[in-house]
């Protein structure tokens, strides 16, 4: 098992190096002159030269690459070329708690919806409840998250005025201010995600419910509740865990769009504003960090999977 973990860790590190390399070189593919693109029309000759030197574009590509890579390993992602020229790492460190709070709450909301829905659908297969869950899943998968966000704002912020429509408060400002700003965006992101998990739980439960050990549990006279929650559900969760890695991609993609609806300055908003300002160091840093989280979560899922299901062999 130790060898397996080590191999997966090395694999993930190699992927990250490749990811960073790709992110770096792709930006150099910008058609035409990236400096001109960053400065737009307003750039004078001196401004051009200053920016070229600052970004190190006057050096050979390979030198730039190794320098960038070395700096990155020390947590230095360069500086924003826009506004007050803050270090990119500082911008990202400020944005990260917002995106992580959002992803975490979205995940919790998705599970709160998906677990009961999936179990009910499986235990009452082909009933009206099952059909309702299936329809809900289709709707959840088909509804753009930013549209759901807008609908939630129309109902709960603009009309009922129960919750704020925009902004973010850190947890240090208190639980309710933090939560109240995140509830609507988390529902917007979590709903689509819950549809996927509910479907997975349903089909996994159906498979488990037919297993021999379920009949054994029933013939021992165990109450249905115990059979479902203690015997069936944990086993039904195993395949669900494998999709969580993929689902993390959805959470992040969801956050990129939904943060922009609610004006929450998380990674997604940093990324999109970076693109709008042609602030390439920021864009590069944000894409890199998002991918790092994605690679890490996939790695964690693989390891978790191995821990949870002892039937898996590490060869």
């Amino acid at each position: 098992m130790a060898a397996y973990i080590l191999r997966r860790l090395i694999g993930a590190a190699l992927v990250m190096i490749a990811v960073a390399t790709l992110v770096f070189f792709m930006l150099r593919l910008v058609p035409g002159d990236p400096i001109a693109a960053m400065l737009a029309e307003a750039g004078s000759d001196e401004a051009r030269e200053a920016l070229t030197r600052k970004l190190g574009f006057d050096q050979p590509l390979i030198v730039q690459y190794f320098k960038w890579f070395g700096n990155m390993l020390q947590g230095d992602l360069g500086a924003s070329i826009y506004g007050s020229n803050q270090p990119v790492s500082k911008i990202i460190v400020e944005a990260l708690p917002r995106t992580l709070s959002l992803a975490f709450l979205s995940f919790v909301i998705a599970l709160i919806i998906a677990i009961p829905a999936g179990i009910i659908a499986a235990t009452r297969k082909n009933s009206a409840a099952d059909t309702a869950v299936s329809l809900f899943a289709f709707l959840g998968l088909s509804m753009p998250d930013f549209w759901l966000a807008i609908l939630l704002i129309i109902v709960f912020a603009a009309n009922l005025q129960w919750l704020p429509a925009i902004g973010y408060e850190p947890l240090s400002a208190g639980l309710w201010p933090w939560l109240s700003h995140l509830i609507l965006p988390s529902i917007a992101i979590g709903t689509g995600f819950s549809a996927i998990i509910a479907r997975m739980i349903r089909s996994a439960m159906l498979e488990v419910l037919n297993a021999d050990y379920m009949r054994t549990a029933a013939s021992k006279g165990l109450p249905t509740r115990i059979i479902l929650l203690r015997h069936a559900f944990p086993n039904a969760l195993i395949p669900v865990i494998t999709v969580i890695g993929i689902a993390f991609a959805l959470l992040i993609s969801g956050a990129v769009v939904v943060e922009n609806v609610f004006a929450i300055k998380g990674l997604g908003r940093v990324l999109i504003q970076g693109i709008q300002n042609r602030d390439y160091p920021v864009v590069q840093g944000a894409v890199l960090v998002v991918s790092a989280f994605f690679v890490l979560s996939n790695l964690l899922v693989d390891l978790l999977y191995a821990v949870i299901d002892p039937r898996i062999r590490y060869s």
Binding site: F248, V256, I272, I275, V287, F294, V295
Partner: peptide
């Protein structure tokens, strides 16, 4: 290693 939507955003 990249979420699909992030690839599309970065390419654009």
């Amino acid at each position: 290693a990249f979420p699909n939507f992030i690839i599309a955003v970065y390419l654009v």
